[in-house]
């Protein structure tokens, strides 16, 4: 913005810092029609869309109420958790991709297709062929703060809960872990769990101690389950490697013995091999010489 005198004046940014937001809140600034238009367009662009494939409606029969029965929902958030499910669960049963999430934000955009490369940003849904009430979701894309609630409403809005049990797998940096000792001395990666009040099964690892907290999409899902009384457990892996890493992925192994995953894992002989392949594919893509 420039004035008649030629100097440049910084206009309050619509993207907004906290101070700007406060300013806007304090001074009841009139929103111009242009402002409103831009805000609406941005909101529209940031909407979360869930696209279910025709296979899903075919298998669940009547799809008129746009809800399908769900007894187990396993959700992996982040590259390592996604790779864990790919190598230990998805390969051992017969799964088919039934849907994807299309979203756009400042960090990533996902497409509306279910055929993706392991290096793409995606959020996909799978269904167990032998039991169509078992769903699995792999989400390695960033879901922004303003999109998490929408994501929840739309995903859980499609589910008709039939003794639903939710399992969430996620990773975060070990430096986020609070302990009286130094985090340098901790043997990472390690697994900690959080569970909702309704979750009565045994948990495969120690529970997360106070004053530690979990943020992001995993916490949004767990909050939803706590409020609406759905049994849910979150396994959070604290790791010191941010990229895809075999040691971090294998840290999730204790979860395989949990009641919800046990029945889904049949053949683990190929798992390590698939895992190795996954990690190398990613390494090649991360290489500057590709």
């Amino acid at each position: 913005m420039a004035t008649f005198f030629g100097e440049v004046v910084a206009a309050p940014s619509r993207a907004g810092m906290d101070d700007d937001e406060e300013e806007a809140a304090a001074v009841e600034r009139e929103e111009t029609p242009e402002d409103r238009e831009i805000r609406r367009e941005l909101e529209k662009k940031r909407e979360v869309h869930i696209l279910w494939s025709s296979k899903l409606s075919a298998s669940t029969g009547s799809f008129t109420d746009e809800q399908f029965p769900c007894s187990k929902f396993i959700l992996a958030i982040g590259h390592n958790a996604v790779a864990f499910l790919s190598s230990f669960v998805l390969n051992s049963g017969c799964w088919e991709a039934v849907g994807s999430v299309k979203l756009w934000n400042e960090w990533c955009r996902t497409s509306n297709t279910t055929s993706v490369l392991p290096t793409d940003a995606f959020c996909l849904f799978y269904k167990l062929i032998s039991d169509p009430t078992v769903f699995l979701c792999q989400c390695n894309c960033y879901v922004a703060e303003d999109q998490q609630f929408q994501w929840l409403e739309k995903v859980f809005g499609c589910m008709r809960e039939e003794d639903l049990q939710v399992t969430i797998l996620s990773t975060c940096p070990v430096t986020d872990y609070k302990t009286p000792e130094s985090t340098l001395t901790l043997p990472s990666p390690f697994l900690k769990a959080l569970k909702t009040k309704e979750f009565k099964e045994t948990v495969s690892c120690p529970l997360l101690e106070q004053p530690n907290i979990v943020q992001g999409l995993p916490s949004a899902v767990l909050s939803y389950c706590q409020v609406w009384q759905i049994p849910a457990v979150l396994y959070q892996c604290y790791t010191d490697v941010i990229k895809l890493d075999t040691v971090t992925i294998e840290a999730f192994k204790p979860v395989l013995s949990s009641k919800n995953l046990k029945s889904l894992v049949k053949d683990m002989s190929k798992s390590t091999e698939i895992l190795k392949k996954l990690v190398t594919t990613n390494e090649i893509h991360n290489n500057i010489y590709t």
Binding site: Q150, L194, K195, L207, S223
Partner: peptide, 29 residues
């Protein structure tokens, strides 16, 4: 709970725990 889409989500165990028994209750934002 005051469940809303206006607050950034977070979860942790009971911040007001006094003993082992009540330390594992989930708390939200």
């Amino acid at each position: 709970y005051f469940y809303t889409d206006c607050l950034v989500p977070m979860v942790g165990n009971n911040p007001y725990a006094t003993a082992e028994e009540n330390s594992t209750e989930l708390s939200i934002n």
